[in-house]
């Protein structure tokens, strides 16, 4: 808002408010970390020390990694999110290119369908998709976790916008150079649209890593559960108040995205705001 820096009383006021709100925002994370290294006895002690009297972290994390199939959950997350992201890109990029650069009958209608798909929230589709999955025998499998998301209207929309900004001459030059239409998508357009593609991939991976709704419907076997569903199942199994291993598990589920976020803050923020704007 302002080029000059604030006078010092205002600066102090700014920091005192923001430090407090930032602390409140981070409190659940801090508390989760703190509990994940505390022993069972210490939870009940009154007073709130951040650091444990006795470091129980190793036991808790070992319990989280062995008692519950947590590594399996994380692996499932990587597998499912990776497959979804790749399949979405494989389907969306050619379609976005066709919508952006080719003349064909029905293009307008197809784009209208994409926009319609953009409006429909995923939860609305749960019931029919559950039925489709059930009839095709896809439930309780990796395919069942992946198939509803292979198409992303948002991905088509985003890439189409970006492809439209690429000059037609580049496409023409590529055709003259002998590149096929599919070749233009992958050799020319996709590399040029790299920022948009990375933004879309971040958006896709974050959404599906965090998704609980569909996995809850589609999967029963513990061995197939992605991280969000896994941690919930872990909690239900760990009845009682031995928070240590549970919190260690939660930390492990949250950590990959948070670390990635801290490494590439700007990219993540841009990508996730794009997603909200969809």
């Amino acid at each position: 808002m302002s080029v000059r820096s604030l006078p010092w009383p205002a600066a102090v006021a700014r920091h005192s408010v923001l430090i407090v709100t930032a602390a409140l925002m981070l409190l659940p994370f801090v508390w989760m970390l703190s509990l994940s290294v505390k022993g069972p006895g210490e939870m009940f002690r009154s007073g709130f020390a951040l650091l444990p009297a006795h470091f129980h972290g190793l036991d808790n994390y070992r319990a989280a990694l062995t008692a519950a199939p947590l590594p399996r959950f994380l692996l499932n997350g990587v597998l499912v999110c990776g497959s979804i992201a790749i399949l979405q890109l494989l389907l969306c990029a050619p379609c976005a290119y066709a919508l952006a650069k080719l003349q064909f009958k029905g293009r307008g209608a197809l784009f209208a369908l994409v926009l319609l798909g953009l409006i429909i929230p995923q939860q609305v589709l749960a019931l029919p998709l559950f039925f489709i999955g059930y009839r095709l025998g896809l439930l309780d499998s990796y395919v069942g976790l992946i198939f509803p998301f292979v198409i992303s209207p948002f991905g088509i929309f985003l890439l189409r916008q970006f492809f439209r900004g690429i000059p037609d001459d580049i496409v023409h030059a590529a055709r003259l150079d002998g590149v096929s239409e599919l070749g233009i998508v992958w050799r020319i357009m996709a590399p040029m649209a790299q920022p948009a593609i990375i933004a879309f991939l971040i958006f896709s991976v974050v959404s599906h890593w965090n998704d609980l709704f569909w996995p809850l419907i589609a999967v029963r076997s513990e061995s197939l559960m992605p991280p969000a569903l896994g941690i919930v199942t872990f909690r239900d199994a760990e009845a009682g108040t031995d928070y240590g291993p549970l919190m260690a598990g939660a930390v492990l589920v949250v950590a990959p995205l948070v670390l990635a976020f801290l490494l590439a803050q700007r990219r993540f923020i841009e990508s996730l705001t794009l997603g909200g704007v969809k």
Partner: peptide, 8 residues
């Protein structure tokens, strides 16, 4: 091409 249309 006028814009050269090189692949950037």
């Amino acid at each position: 091409f006028q814009s050269y249309a090189l692949y950037p």
